[in-house]
Design a protein around this nucleic acid. Sequence first.
DNA 1: GTCTATATGATGATAGAC
DNA 2: GTCTATCATCATATAGAC
Lengths: 203, 203
Amino acid sequence: MPYTLKHKEQTRQRILQTAAKLFCTYGFDRVTLDQIMKKANMTHGAFYAHFSGKSSLYEAALQLAASHSFWARREKQSENKETHIKALLTRYLSWTRNSGDSPSPLEFLVTDAAHKEEKVRKAYQACFDSLVDRLTIILKKQGSTGDVKDLAEETVVSLVGTVAIARSITQPLQRDFLKRAQSRIFNRINLAIQDTKIVSDKC
Amino acid sequence: MPYTLKHKEQTRQRILQTAAKLFCTYGFDRVTLDQIMKKANMTHGAFYAHFSGKSSLYEAALQLAASHSFWARREKQSENKETHIKALLTRYLSWTRNSGDSPSPLEFLVTDAAHKEEKVRKAYQACFDSLVDRLTIILKKQGSTGDVKDLAEETVVSLVGTVAIARSITQPLQRDFLKRAQSRIFNRINLAIQDTKIVSDKC
DNA sequence: GTCTATATGATGATAGAC
DNA sequence: GTCTATCATCATATAGAC
Protein backbone atom coordinates (compact mmCIF):
# COMPACT_ATOMS: atom_id res chain seq x y z
CA MET A 1 0.00 0.00 0.00
CA PRO A 2 1.92 2.99 -1.27
CA TYR A 3 -0.26 5.69 0.23
CA THR A 4 -1.20 5.37 3.86
CA LEU A 5 -4.02 7.19 5.56
CA LYS A 6 -1.47 9.05 7.59
CA HIS A 7 0.18 10.27 4.44
CA LYS A 8 -3.08 11.58 3.08
CA GLU A 9 -3.82 13.42 6.29
CA GLN A 10 -0.39 14.99 6.26
CA THR A 11 -0.86 16.16 2.70
CA ARG A 12 -4.23 17.61 3.55
CA GLN A 13 -2.70 19.50 6.43
CA ARG A 14 0.06 20.81 4.21
CA ILE A 15 -2.50 22.15 1.75
CA LEU A 16 -4.55 23.62 4.55
CA GLN A 17 -1.68 25.45 6.19
CA THR A 18 -0.38 26.78 2.91
CA ALA A 19 -3.83 27.98 2.01
CA ALA A 20 -4.46 29.61 5.36
CA LYS A 21 -1.27 31.58 5.07
CA LEU A 22 -1.96 32.69 1.52
CA PHE A 23 -5.59 33.56 2.18
CA CYS A 24 -4.60 35.60 5.21
CA THR A 25 -2.10 37.51 3.14
CA TYR A 26 -3.92 38.06 -0.12
CA GLY A 27 -7.59 37.31 0.46
CA PHE A 28 -9.84 34.78 -1.21
CA ASP A 29 -9.95 36.07 -4.77
CA ARG A 30 -6.29 36.78 -5.25
CA VAL A 31 -5.21 33.27 -4.35
CA THR A 32 -5.52 30.52 -6.96
CA LEU A 33 -5.64 26.80 -6.37
CA ASP A 34 -2.67 26.41 -8.65
CA GLN A 35 -0.70 28.80 -6.48
CA ILE A 36 -1.59 26.95 -3.31
CA MET A 37 -0.80 23.52 -4.70
CA LYS A 38 2.49 24.64 -6.17
CA LYS A 39 3.57 25.96 -2.76
CA ALA A 40 2.52 22.65 -1.27
CA ASN A 41 4.69 20.90 -3.87
CA MET A 42 1.91 19.41 -5.96
CA THR A 43 0.01 20.12 -9.12
CA HIS A 44 -3.47 21.51 -8.98
CA GLY A 45 -5.03 18.29 -10.19
CA ALA A 46 -4.27 16.64 -6.88
CA PHE A 47 -6.32 19.16 -4.98
CA TYR A 48 -9.67 17.49 -5.41
CA ALA A 49 -8.56 14.35 -3.65
CA HIS A 50 -8.61 16.44 -0.45
CA PHE A 51 -11.26 19.11 -0.78
CA SER A 52 -14.49 19.41 -2.68
CA GLY A 53 -13.67 22.86 -3.98
CA LYS A 54 -12.14 26.24 -3.26
CA SER A 55 -14.98 27.39 -1.02
CA SER A 56 -14.67 24.31 1.09
CA LEU A 57 -10.94 24.88 1.46
CA TYR A 58 -11.54 28.49 2.36
CA GLU A 59 -13.84 27.57 5.19
CA ALA A 60 -11.40 25.06 6.62
CA ALA A 61 -8.46 27.41 6.22
CA LEU A 62 -10.32 30.13 8.02
CA GLN A 63 -11.03 27.94 11.00
CA LEU A 64 -7.41 26.85 11.09
CA ALA A 65 -6.24 30.44 10.91
CA ALA A 66 -8.56 31.40 13.74
CA SER A 67 -7.33 28.66 16.02
CA HIS A 68 -3.70 29.03 15.00
CA SER A 69 -3.71 32.75 15.53
CA PHE A 70 -0.89 33.67 17.82
CA TRP A 71 -3.47 34.83 20.30
CA ALA A 72 -4.57 31.27 20.64
CA ARG A 73 -1.10 30.01 21.41
CA ARG A 74 -0.18 30.38 25.01
CA GLU A 75 3.07 32.22 25.21
CA LYS A 76 5.40 31.22 27.98
CA GLN A 77 3.95 33.11 30.88
CA SER A 78 7.01 32.92 33.03
CA GLU A 79 7.93 36.51 32.36
CA ASN A 80 6.74 39.66 33.97
CA LYS A 81 3.02 40.03 33.42
CA GLU A 82 3.15 43.53 32.10
CA THR A 83 5.83 42.50 29.66
CA HIS A 84 3.64 39.64 28.60
CA ILE A 85 0.69 41.62 27.34
CA LYS A 86 2.84 44.27 25.74
CA ALA A 87 4.85 41.61 23.98
CA LEU A 88 1.64 40.21 22.56
CA LEU A 89 0.40 43.57 21.36
CA THR A 90 3.77 44.49 19.95
CA ARG A 91 3.90 41.26 18.05
CA TYR A 92 0.48 41.88 16.62
CA LEU A 93 1.46 45.36 15.54
CA SER A 94 4.85 44.40 14.24
CA TRP A 95 3.36 42.99 11.12
CA THR A 96 5.57 43.73 8.16
CA ARG A 97 5.36 42.93 4.51
CA ASN A 98 8.34 40.66 4.72
CA SER A 99 7.83 38.85 7.99
CA GLY A 100 7.35 35.13 7.53
CA ASP A 101 4.34 35.14 9.82
CA SER A 102 0.97 34.96 8.26
CA PRO A 103 -1.04 37.94 9.41
CA SER A 104 -4.09 37.66 11.59
CA PRO A 105 -7.13 36.65 9.58
CA LEU A 106 -9.02 39.58 11.02
CA GLU A 107 -7.60 42.10 8.62
CA PHE A 108 -7.61 40.33 5.29
CA LEU A 109 -11.06 38.97 5.87
CA VAL A 110 -12.58 42.36 6.19
CA THR A 111 -13.44 42.63 2.53
CA ASP A 112 -13.77 38.90 2.05
CA ALA A 113 -16.13 37.92 4.80
CA ALA A 114 -18.36 40.93 4.40
CA HIS A 115 -19.86 39.52 1.22
CA LYS A 116 -19.78 35.84 1.95
CA GLU A 117 -22.40 33.53 3.33
CA GLU A 118 -23.28 33.42 7.02
CA LYS A 119 -21.05 30.39 7.56
CA VAL A 120 -17.91 32.35 6.79
CA ARG A 121 -19.04 35.27 8.92
CA LYS A 122 -19.59 32.90 11.81
CA ALA A 123 -15.99 31.76 11.51
CA TYR A 124 -14.87 35.36 11.47
CA GLN A 125 -16.99 36.10 14.49
CA ALA A 126 -15.46 33.18 16.35
CA CYS A 127 -12.00 34.44 15.56
CA PHE A 128 -12.86 37.90 16.78
CA ASP A 129 -14.53 36.66 19.95
CA SER A 130 -11.63 34.43 20.86
CA LEU A 131 -9.27 37.37 20.60
CA VAL A 132 -11.44 39.52 22.80
CA ASP A 133 -11.89 36.76 25.36
CA ARG A 134 -8.21 35.98 25.49
CA LEU A 135 -7.31 39.60 25.97
CA THR A 136 -9.96 39.97 28.64
CA ILE A 137 -8.40 37.16 30.62
CA ILE A 138 -4.95 38.65 30.33
CA LEU A 139 -6.16 42.07 31.39
CA LYS A 140 -7.94 40.65 34.40
CA LYS A 141 -4.81 38.80 35.42
CA GLN A 142 -3.03 42.10 35.39
CA GLY A 143 -5.50 43.43 37.88
CA SER A 144 -7.58 45.54 35.58
CA THR A 145 -11.15 45.84 36.83
CA GLY A 146 -14.22 47.66 35.60
CA ASP A 147 -15.62 46.74 32.20
CA VAL A 148 -12.56 44.76 31.17
CA LYS A 149 -14.30 43.06 28.28
CA ASP A 150 -15.20 46.43 26.83
CA LEU A 151 -11.59 47.51 27.07
CA ALA A 152 -10.54 44.30 25.40
CA GLU A 153 -12.99 44.82 22.56
CA GLU A 154 -11.86 48.39 22.15
CA THR A 155 -8.27 47.22 21.96
CA VAL A 156 -8.96 44.56 19.35
CA VAL A 157 -10.85 47.06 17.23
CA SER A 158 -7.87 49.38 17.42
CA LEU A 159 -5.46 46.60 16.54
CA VAL A 160 -7.45 45.52 13.53
CA GLY A 161 -7.95 49.08 12.32
CA THR A 162 -4.31 49.87 12.82
CA VAL A 163 -2.87 46.92 10.98
CA ALA A 164 -5.45 47.19 8.23
CA ILE A 165 -4.62 50.81 7.58
CA ALA A 166 -0.89 50.27 7.96
CA ARG A 167 -1.04 47.67 5.22
CA SER A 168 -2.64 50.12 2.86
CA ILE A 169 -0.69 53.33 3.31
CA THR A 170 2.64 54.20 1.75
CA GLN A 171 5.75 52.48 3.02
CA PRO A 172 7.66 55.46 4.43
CA LEU A 173 4.83 56.40 6.78
CA GLN A 174 4.00 52.91 7.99
CA ARG A 175 6.59 52.74 10.71
CA ASP A 176 5.63 55.96 12.46
CA PHE A 177 1.95 55.29 12.11
CA LEU A 178 2.36 51.93 13.83
CA LYS A 179 4.43 53.51 16.59
CA ARG A 180 1.85 56.16 17.33
CA ALA A 181 -0.93 53.59 17.39
CA GLN A 182 1.06 51.35 19.69
CA SER A 183 1.70 54.06 22.22
CA ARG A 184 -1.97 55.04 22.21
CA ILE A 185 -3.04 51.48 22.87
CA PHE A 186 -0.45 51.03 25.61
CA ASN A 187 -1.46 54.27 27.27
CA ARG A 188 -5.06 53.26 27.36
CA ILE A 189 -4.26 49.93 28.96
CA ASN A 190 -1.84 51.48 31.43
CA LEU A 191 -4.51 53.94 32.40
CA ALA A 192 -7.01 51.18 33.10
CA ILE A 193 -4.54 49.32 35.27
CA GLN A 194 -3.38 52.48 37.00
CA ASP A 195 -6.93 53.51 37.77
CA THR A 196 -7.50 50.15 39.34
CA LYS A 197 -4.41 50.55 41.47
CA ILE A 198 -5.40 54.02 42.59
CA VAL A 199 -8.84 52.81 43.53
CA SER A 200 -7.47 49.89 45.51
CA ASP A 201 -4.91 52.14 47.20
CA LYS A 202 -7.71 54.34 48.41
CA CYS A 203 -9.51 51.43 50.01
CA MET B 1 -22.32 66.08 -34.74
CA PRO B 2 -24.35 63.56 -32.78
CA TYR B 3 -22.00 63.20 -29.82
CA THR B 4 -20.76 66.34 -28.17
CA LEU B 5 -17.74 66.64 -25.92
CA LYS B 6 -20.05 67.44 -23.07
CA HIS B 7 -21.92 64.25 -23.63
CA LYS B 8 -18.74 62.20 -23.51
CA GLU B 9 -17.67 63.84 -20.29
CA GLN B 10 -21.05 63.15 -18.74
CA THR B 11 -20.87 59.52 -19.74
CA ARG B 12 -17.39 59.25 -18.29
CA GLN B 13 -18.60 60.69 -15.02
CA ARG B 14 -21.49 58.27 -14.95
CA ILE B 15 -19.13 55.34 -15.35
CA LEU B 16 -16.79 56.75 -12.74
CA GLN B 17 -19.45 57.27 -10.12
CA THR B 18 -20.98 53.89 -10.68
CA ALA B 19 -17.56 52.28 -10.44
CA ALA B 20 -16.60 54.15 -7.29
CA LYS B 21 -19.73 53.00 -5.55
CA LEU B 22 -19.32 49.39 -6.61
CA PHE B 23 -15.62 49.26 -5.81
CA CYS B 24 -16.26 50.72 -2.36
CA THR B 25 -18.86 48.09 -1.69
CA TYR B 26 -17.32 44.96 -3.15
CA GLY B 27 -13.64 45.65 -3.73
CA PHE B 28 -11.66 45.54 -6.95
CA ASP B 29 -11.80 41.87 -7.80
CA ARG B 30 -15.45 41.26 -7.22
CA VAL B 31 -16.58 44.00 -9.57
CA THR B 32 -16.58 43.34 -13.31
CA LEU B 33 -16.56 45.86 -16.09
CA ASP B 34 -19.71 44.33 -17.44
CA GLN B 35 -21.43 44.94 -14.12
CA ILE B 36 -20.31 48.55 -14.02
CA MET B 37 -21.32 49.30 -17.57
CA LYS B 38 -24.70 47.65 -17.21
CA LYS B 39 -25.42 49.83 -14.17
CA ALA B 40 -24.37 52.82 -16.21
CA ASN B 41 -26.82 51.73 -18.92
CA MET B 42 -24.29 50.66 -21.50
CA THR B 43 -22.64 47.53 -22.78
CA HIS B 44 -19.11 46.71 -21.78
CA GLY B 45 -17.78 47.36 -25.25
CA ALA B 46 -18.30 51.08 -24.79
CA PHE B 47 -16.02 51.16 -21.80
CA TYR B 48 -12.77 51.53 -23.70
CA ALA B 49 -13.84 54.78 -25.27
CA HIS B 50 -13.43 56.30 -21.81
CA PHE B 51 -10.73 54.41 -19.94
CA SER B 52 -7.67 52.45 -20.96
CA GLY B 53 -8.50 49.51 -18.72
CA LYS B 54 -9.84 48.36 -15.39
CA SER B 55 -6.78 49.46 -13.42
CA SER B 56 -7.00 52.92 -14.84
CA LEU B 57 -10.65 53.14 -13.87
CA TYR B 58 -9.84 51.87 -10.40
CA GLU B 59 -7.35 54.62 -9.80
CA ALA B 60 -9.73 57.32 -10.94
CA ALA B 61 -12.62 55.86 -8.98
CA LEU B 62 -10.50 55.76 -5.85
CA GLN B 63 -9.62 59.42 -6.12
CA LEU B 64 -13.24 60.28 -6.70
CA ALA B 65 -14.32 58.22 -3.71
CA ALA B 66 -11.72 59.90 -1.54
CA SER B 67 -12.84 63.37 -2.47
CA HIS B 68 -16.54 62.54 -2.39
CA SER B 69 -16.31 60.92 1.00
CA PHE B 70 -18.93 62.45 3.24
CA TRP B 71 -16.12 63.75 5.39
CA ALA B 72 -15.12 65.93 2.53
CA ARG B 73 -18.54 67.47 2.20
CA ARG B 74 -19.12 70.32 4.55
CA GLU B 75 -22.27 69.64 6.44
CA LYS B 76 -24.38 72.63 7.33
CA GLN B 77 -22.62 73.91 10.38
CA SER B 78 -25.48 75.98 11.66
CA GLU B 79 -26.33 73.47 14.34
CA ASN B 80 -24.92 72.95 17.77
CA LYS B 81 -21.24 72.11 17.52
CA GLU B 82 -21.38 69.05 19.70
CA THR B 83 -24.28 67.74 17.72
CA HIS B 84 -22.32 68.35 14.57
CA ILE B 85 -19.40 66.06 15.31
CA LYS B 86 -21.59 63.37 16.79
CA ALA B 87 -23.83 63.46 13.78
CA LEU B 88 -20.82 62.90 11.57
CA LEU B 89 -19.55 59.98 13.61
CA THR B 90 -22.98 58.46 13.88
CA ARG B 91 -23.42 58.69 10.17
CA TYR B 92 -20.10 56.97 9.62
CA LEU B 93 -21.02 54.20 12.00
CA SER B 94 -24.56 53.81 10.77
CA TRP B 95 -23.41 51.93 7.75
CA THR B 96 -25.85 49.18 6.90
CA ARG B 97 -25.96 46.58 4.20
CA ASN B 98 -28.99 48.13 2.63
CA SER B 99 -28.33 51.82 2.89
CA GLY B 100 -28.02 53.46 -0.48
CA ASP B 101 -24.82 55.22 0.54
CA SER B 102 -21.59 53.87 -0.75
CA PRO B 103 -19.37 53.09 2.20
CA SER B 104 -16.17 54.92 2.92
CA PRO B 105 -13.33 53.64 0.74
CA LEU B 106 -11.23 53.16 3.82
CA GLU B 107 -12.72 49.82 4.72
CA PHE B 108 -13.08 48.03 1.46
CA LEU B 109 -9.67 49.12 0.35
CA VAL B 110 -7.97 47.45 3.23
CA THR B 111 -7.43 44.21 1.39
CA ASP B 112 -7.30 45.84 -2.02
CA ALA B 113 -4.75 48.56 -1.56
CA ALA B 114 -2.44 46.46 0.55
CA HIS B 115 -1.26 44.54 -2.47
CA LYS B 116 -1.42 47.17 -5.14
CA GLU B 117 1.20 49.49 -6.50
CA GLU B 118 2.36 52.57 -4.64
CA LYS B 119 0.09 54.79 -6.69
CA VAL B 120 -3.02 53.22 -5.24
CA ARG B 121 -1.62 53.34 -1.73
CA LYS B 122 -0.94 57.02 -2.17
CA ALA B 123 -4.58 57.56 -2.99
CA TYR B 124 -5.55 55.58 0.08
CA GLN B 125 -3.15 57.60 2.18
CA ALA B 126 -4.66 60.84 0.88
CA CYS B 127 -8.10 59.64 1.79
CA PHE B 128 -7.00 58.70 5.27
CA ASP B 129 -5.13 61.95 5.84
CA SER B 130 -8.03 64.08 4.72
CA LEU B 131 -10.28 62.33 7.21
CA VAL B 132 -7.84 62.89 10.04
CA ASP B 133 -7.31 66.52 9.10
CA ARG B 134 -10.98 67.23 8.83
CA LEU B 135 -11.69 65.65 12.19
CA THR B 136 -8.80 67.56 13.74
CA ILE B 137 -10.30 70.84 12.63
CA ILE B 138 -13.70 69.94 14.00
CA LEU B 139 -12.25 68.86 17.34
CA LYS B 140 -10.29 72.06 17.66
CA LYS B 141 -13.40 74.08 16.95
CA GLN B 142 -15.03 72.29 19.83
CA GLY B 143 -12.28 73.52 22.09
CA SER B 144 -10.29 70.33 22.41
CA THR B 145 -6.63 71.06 23.02
CA GLY B 146 -3.59 68.88 23.58
CA ASP B 147 -2.56 66.51 20.83
CA VAL B 148 -5.77 66.89 18.91
CA LYS B 149 -4.37 65.36 15.76
CA ASP B 150 -3.46 62.24 17.68
CA LEU B 151 -6.98 62.00 19.03
CA ALA B 152 -8.31 62.44 15.52
CA GLU B 153 -6.09 59.68 14.19
CA GLU B 154 -7.08 57.41 17.03
CA THR B 155 -10.72 58.08 16.26
CA VAL B 156 -10.38 57.35 12.56
CA VAL B 157 -8.55 54.10 13.32
CA SER B 158 -11.40 53.11 15.60
CA LEU B 159 -13.99 54.03 13.02
CA VAL B 160 -12.32 52.03 10.30
CA GLY B 161 -11.77 49.04 12.55
CA THR B 162 -15.31 49.17 13.79
CA VAL B 163 -17.03 49.35 10.43
CA ALA B 164 -14.67 46.79 8.95
CA ILE B 165 -15.41 44.29 11.69
CA ALA B 166 -19.10 45.08 11.74
CA ARG B 167 -19.30 44.24 8.05
CA SER B 168 -17.79 40.84 8.69
CA ILE B 169 -19.57 39.51 11.75
CA THR B 170 -22.97 37.88 11.90
CA GLN B 171 -26.05 40.03 11.44
CA PRO B 172 -27.68 39.63 14.87
CA LEU B 173 -24.63 40.95 16.69
CA GLN B 174 -23.87 43.85 14.36
CA ARG B 175 -26.21 46.33 15.94
CA ASP B 176 -24.97 45.94 19.49
CA PHE B 177 -21.37 45.88 18.43
CA LEU B 178 -21.79 49.19 16.62
CA LYS B 179 -23.56 50.70 19.61
CA ARG B 180 -20.79 49.73 22.01
CA ALA B 181 -18.14 51.07 19.68
CA GLN B 182 -20.00 54.32 19.24
CA SER B 183 -20.32 54.95 22.94
CA ARG B 184 -16.61 54.24 23.45
CA ILE B 185 -15.67 56.71 20.75
CA PHE B 186 -18.04 59.36 22.08
CA ASN B 187 -16.75 58.88 25.61
CA ARG B 188 -13.19 59.37 24.52
CA ILE B 189 -14.00 62.57 22.70
CA ASN B 190 -16.12 63.88 25.55
CA LEU B 191 -13.27 63.20 27.90
CA ALA B 192 -10.84 65.17 25.78
CA ILE B 193 -13.17 68.12 25.64
CA GLN B 194 -14.01 67.89 29.33
CA ASP B 195 -10.34 67.75 30.30
CA THR B 196 -9.74 70.86 28.31
CA LYS B 197 -12.54 72.62 30.10
CA ILE B 198 -11.26 71.54 33.51
CA VAL B 199 -7.79 72.77 32.70
CA SER B 200 -9.06 76.13 31.51
CA ASP B 201 -11.25 76.41 34.58
CA LYS B 202 -8.22 76.02 36.77
CA CYS B 203 -6.37 78.81 35.01
C1' DG C 1 -19.75 56.70 -28.97
C1' DT C 2 -22.01 52.72 -28.60
C1' DC C 3 -23.16 48.44 -30.18
C1' DT C 4 -22.43 43.17 -31.24
C1' DA C 5 -19.20 39.67 -31.86
C1' DT C 6 -15.01 37.64 -30.97
C1' DA C 7 -10.20 36.88 -29.39
C1' DT C 8 -7.33 35.94 -25.43
C1' DG C 9 -6.18 34.61 -21.07
C1' DA C 10 -6.88 32.87 -16.49
C1' DT C 11 -8.97 29.79 -13.23
C1' DG C 12 -12.01 26.34 -11.13
C1' DA C 13 -13.04 21.80 -12.00
C1' DT C 14 -13.01 16.95 -14.35
C1' DA C 15 -11.13 12.66 -16.81
C1' DG C 16 -8.12 9.16 -17.16
C1' DA C 17 -3.24 7.25 -17.01
C1' DC C 18 0.04 5.64 -13.61
C1' DG D 1 -2.89 10.00 -4.45
C1' DT D 2 -0.80 12.37 -7.80
C1' DC D 3 0.02 13.36 -12.35
C1' DT D 4 -0.99 15.33 -17.18
C1' DA D 5 -4.20 16.72 -20.14
C1' DT D 6 -8.60 18.90 -21.11
C1' DC D 7 -13.07 21.28 -20.42
C1' DA D 8 -16.05 25.04 -19.23
C1' DT D 9 -16.66 29.44 -17.63
C1' DC D 10 -15.99 33.90 -17.03
C1' DA D 11 -13.62 38.51 -17.59
C1' DT D 12 -10.57 41.65 -19.87
C1' DA D 13 -9.80 43.51 -23.99
C1' DT D 14 -10.19 44.21 -29.23
C1' DA D 15 -12.42 44.51 -34.00
C1' DG D 16 -15.54 46.25 -36.90
C1' DA D 17 -20.49 47.68 -38.02
C1' DC D 18 -23.57 51.50 -37.35
